[in-house]
Simulated scan of single mutants.
Amino acid sequence: MIGFLEIRRRKLQFALIGVIVALISYLVLMINGLGVGLNEQAGRALRNFDADAIAYSDRAGLSVIRSELSAETLERVRTESGARESAALGYMAVNYRRDDGRVKSAAVLGFDPGTIGAPPVTAGRGLTPEDGNALLADRQFLKASGLRVGDSVRLSVRLQEREFTIVGELNEGAFFFQPSVYMLRSTWQEMKYGRVDATTPVASVVLLKGDGLAGKRGEGWEAVSKGTAFANIEGVSGQQSTVQALRVFGYLIGGLVIGVFFYVLTIQKTPQIGVLKAVGATSGFIFRQLLIQALLIGLGGVVVAVPLAWLTNEGIKQAPDPVPIAFTTGTFVTTSVLLLAMALVGVLFSGRQVAKVDPIIALGQQQ
Results as ranks from 00 to 15, higher is better:
117 G>D: 02
279 V>K: 04
277 K>S: 04
98 R>V: 08
280 G>L: 08
105 S>C: 10
280 G>H: 01
169 E>Y: 06
193 Y>Q: 00
337 V>F: 12
264 V>M: 15
13 Q>D: 15
300 G>F: 14
329 T>W: 14
84 R>F: 10
75 E>F: 15
2 I>M: 15
244 Q>Y: 09
355 A>D: 07
84 R>D: 14
98 R>M: 04
55 A>Y: 01
159 L>Y: 15
132 G>F: 12
302 V>G: 00
138 D>A: 08
197 D>A: 03
101 G>V: 08
20 I>A: 14
158 R>M: 14
198 A>F: 13
338 L>N: 09
110 G>L: 06
85 E>R: 12
310 W>E: 10
60 A>P: 00
186 S>E: 15
309 A>H: 06
346 G>I: 12
144 A>F: 10
149 V>N: 00
82 G>Y: 03
173 G>R: 03
244 Q>R: 14
211 D>Q: 13
302 V>N: 01
323 V>W: 01
277 K>E: 07
351 G>N: 06
344 L>E: 03
41 Q>Y: 02
64 V>A: 13
29 L>G: 02
240 Q>W: 00
110 G>P: 00
180 S>H: 02
340 L>C: 10
208 L>Q: 00
24 I>Y: 06
148 R>D: 13
32 N>I: 06
192 K>W: 15
236 V>C: 00
298 G>E: 06
144 A>R: 05
267 I>M: 12
202 V>N: 02
324 P>Y: 00
315 G>R: 08
179 P>I: 05
81 S>F: 07
129 P>L: 11
100 D>V: 09
143 K>T: 08
107 A>C: 04
